[in-house]
């Protein structure tokens, strides 16, 4: 029983949801730190630095393993979320005529599925825009000052958000997605700890506040990047 319990039971699904979710939180931090390089003033050096970083992130074996774990986590988190949502719907086949969840719960906590779907669609768009172009597209390759042979992801990224026709639309899409992530994290971060059984009057307040700070600051920093590239950065 114990073995199947960790795979099949309702609580197991919650553990995996929490575990993958919190892992993805750490991924967000790493991804953000790398992306902040895009805020550097436009120069050959900035271009080389970002493209060499992108090359490292796609070829270093340790990073590659981490990225596969990230893909699996995203998939698992999404599928587990769908399974849980379907089961939860089944648990109340006859709906209430009058149901007032707003009196006792926060909006984000009730709409994790919708927020998650928005985020999943964003991830697909985001990967199609950059990851797929880098991996399968016809990105221009060149030699950096240090002699590394790299694909020019930097120029693609900057141009995508500075594009006269679609640039602003992409900025809006990215900002809306970051708002969805912010709301998702505002419930998900602390909720993950609760699901894993980490709840103690001594630490609850800290986890909650840290979760809110994380939910605001990380998506905000991410959102600043396309906004700055479009409105602030020198055009290339």
């Amino acid at each position: 029983m114990a073995k199947s319990a960790l795979l099949k039971s309702s609580l197991a699904k919650k553990y995996w949801m929490a575990f993958t979710g919190l892992f993805l939180c750490t991924f967000l931090v790493g991804h953000l730190l790398g992306n902040l390089q895009l805020l550097l003033p436009v120069s050959e050096a900035a271009r080389d630095q970002f493209n060499e970083y992108a090359l490292f992130m796609t070829t270093n074996p340790a990073v590659m393993i981490l990225s596969y774990v990230t893909y699996i986590s995203i998939l698992f988190h999404a599928i587990d979320g769908i399974v849980l949502t379907v089961r939860n719907r089944k648990a109340r086949p006859q709906k209430y005529v009058n149901f007032k969840p707003s009196t006792n719960t926060r909006w984000a906590s009730r709409n994790m599925g919708i927020l998650g779907t928005v985020i999943l669609v964003f991830i697909v768009i985001h990967m199609q825009m950059f990851w797929a172009e880098m991996k399968f597209g016809s990105l221009e390759a060149y030699s950096t000052a240090s002699g590394a042979q790299v694909k020019d992801l930097y120029t693609l990224t900057i141009q995508s958000f500075q594009d006269a026709e679609y640039g602003l639309i992409w900025v809006i899409v990215y900002v809306i997605s970051m708002i969805a992530i912010a709301f998702h994290l505002s419930h998900g971060f602390a909720s993950g700890f609760q699901s894993l059984g980490v709840n103690h009057p001594k630490y609850n307040n800290f986890i909650k506040k840290f979760g809110y700070a994380f939910a605001i600051l990380i998506p905000l920093a991410f959102a600043i990047i396309p906004i700055y590239i479009h409105f602030g950065l020198e055009k290339i």
Partner: peptide
């Protein structure tokens, strides 16, 4: 056939005896 907890906290607020969510974490 009960559903799964998504930690919304509605139960704790509506519970006539004020049973805390801390219990769910303990069960987890």
């Amino acid at each position: 056939g009960f559903g799964n907890c998504t930690n919304t906290g509605a139960c704790e607020i509506e519970c006539p005896k004020g049973i805390s969510l801390e219990n769910i974490a303990r069960m987890n």
